[in-house]
Design a binder for these strands. Structure first.
Lengths: 215, 215, 215, 215
DNA sequence: CATGAATGAGTTTTCATTCAT
DNA sequence: TATGAATGAAAACTCATTCAT
């Protein structure tokens, strides 16, 4: 039950658009610096230096500084997020989880791993969301549609088996993601000791399972 | 059990340091614009225009643009957050909550109200945290110390009465704040329909109470 | 019969908009350099150097480099040209010329003096016209309307007196201005020995008078 | 009495220096774009795109962007203008014009046709002249020498026959070319309805003939 | 105290030109 | 010979900050 991580998808994306070696370095440098110092505090000269190229090279392919940001964020918005969400839902349907517990345990671990594997991208995303709420609105809508479609029937099963509280699907997701997000964000933003995923999963799941038990 | 909101404390703060009327307008304009467009995307000229003063005036009192940011954030960091936290803890001790439920219900509602009442300041705070994790680290440490001191004994009570799961205080706080934060952040950042606090409190508490029930 | 020259009108214009001393120097430097090297071959740094100010100062008032060009050309297009044309026509009506010859002699000398007095502005104007024909079209239309209104009746008089050929007014103007323009342009563009206006007036008029004699 | 137009001479010139098909496209693209947007507002990338070649190819033969401009203007300056002027003078000597009128009519029509047939080149030429008066000075000198030599004797004939005013040759030429230039420039620069050459010739000649009649 | 003109370092961006493939 | 990625110098423009009035 291996999940495709962003690095791989990103790499695909890069190969597709045939980026030269230097251009890939530019993209990588942007990723690092945007995550480290924020978009506006990163100068294109900084990027050029870190990538070991000239300033002209930064603009040759990506045209503008914003183009560089989009080159990082767009795959997330339009490709990778939906694709990961799709894969995730497929995974849910294919594999039969013997209980809601094993299901929730998988979900929590999977999402946490994903987030920690892609800290940098996440951080930039969060920065942009905070500045430009429109991104968040769009994303929220996209994801809620994707999830609602695939998850409703699944939740229904668990509700019938008496393993899951009889709430609206979105409320359940909101609660669960709230806990996960609340746990993750500090770890994504501060570069603390990189989180013991197994232990965290245990803690979160224990809490979630009781909070979402049928009354 | 009215809680002192930031506006009031802020006003105190301003009076203390003897800000002229124009300087207050400058501070207010900064607050609005930093929240709206982010710190780096706000020019000191923007601030001057919105405040209806000259560019020189923006610097007369606050010396630098960063000084302006600090004038907004410092009260949060060094005065208001702790003070509010202190008040909050005092309140806990003064008033006897007849059950953990009424306690948690108060906490959730209080913190939510506080956050929604101070959206703008929150937004700036979040933006700065995301860019500069040091702020978050400091804040986390400060708050955890403050809370731990006052809350441990309180939690012990409820645990003995069999109303609260026997976990480490920090873990309980982390879970609870995770749910609250996960719920709030989207509302602070997007200017969605401004959140029905009573309904949200009900939903969150129902969930928390079962998640934090003793096993 | 003194004609108001551009310098004076320009000065008015500057006083009106309250330009600081340095900003006037910026405008003057732009005028000189645009005329000398052309708009695109003049850098804002060049302008700053010649004006003896910093580069920032160049942009403080005029916002963009194009703004600087417009600040030079607009008075010509929208104020000075029409105003001069108006004055010119008024002058025609006020003063009674005893013959078509004295009339044409006044016109030729007046226009030539005007052009030579404002070489720099003329040169920039010509440069922009050549690059952007729209300017020429607009200007041609504006002037032809202005002139047609005031000149028709005047020409009619001279035609009746048998001093002027019975052609369409526009054709007469085209011929006369053709000769004048053809004579002037080389002198405006090359900074040759600065043209003996009296001698040139004699030459041009002798030619025009016979060319425009009734058949 | 067909006059060799620039296109043809240009083609000769190109063949001589063995331009590859791609290089010809580069030259053609430069011609179009320089005329349309001006030299400095045309980038070598623009040229490459319009010519359908790579950026490197633009420089392969012409070395620099200025080289490209020279490749367009030099034939005018050093080959085509003089050659056309020479052809023109030869034509004058070979063919006997029965009157000054038929002579002037031929000249006017010939020069007008030439100018309208080579609008683009003319426009670039004018642009460069306006920016760099040296070109104009050189050209004026070259042409005046060429013309003076061939034209003096011819004018003498007509003066003796009583068909031409007894002015200095240069003054006559200046007057005539003034009228023609004044008429043409607006048409070269603005892309107005492309000029009825026969009608214009009539108008111009009627005017010129009387202006240049002996007194 | 307040003003706003002036500053100049820093930023994004363009573009002619080179050169390895 | 043709390509187009890479270059880096120079351009236009921004902006926090200073200071004479």
């Amino acid at each position: 039950m291996k999940h495709t991580d962003v690095e791989t998808l990103f790499a695909d994306n890069i190969k597709t658009t045939d980026l030269s070696e230097k251009q890939q370095k530019v993209l990588q440098a942007s990723l690092t610096l945007f995550a480290q110092k924020g978009y506006e505090n990163t100068s294109t000269l900084d990027i050029a230096h870190l990538a070991g190229v000239s300033e002209g090279t930064v603009f040759k392919h990506f045209k503008t500084k914003d183009g560089l940001l989009q080159a990082i964020l767009n795959p997330f918005m339009h490709d990778i997020f939906p694709r990961v969400a799709g894969e995730f839902i497929d995974a849910l349907h294919e594999s039969i989880f013997d209980s809601f517990e094993s299901f929730i345990r998988y979900v929590v671990k999977d999402r946490m791993t994903y987030a920690m594997d892609n800290r940098q991208e996440m951080k930039i995303f969060i920065q942009e969301m905070v500045k430009n709420p429109a991104i968040m609105t769009t994303l929220t809508n996209r994801l809620s549609k994707l999830i609602q479609g695939g998850v409703d029937t699944l939740f229904h099963e668990y509700k019938e088996k008496g393993e899951l509280v009889d709430w609206d699907s979105m409320r359940i997701i909101r609660m669960a993601s709230g806990v996960i997000v609340g746990y993750l964000i500090p770890n994504v933003i501060m570069s603390e000791t990189p989180l013991d995923i197994d232990k965290t999963t245990d803690e979160v799941c224990e809490f979630l399972l009781d909070g979402l038990k049928p009354r």
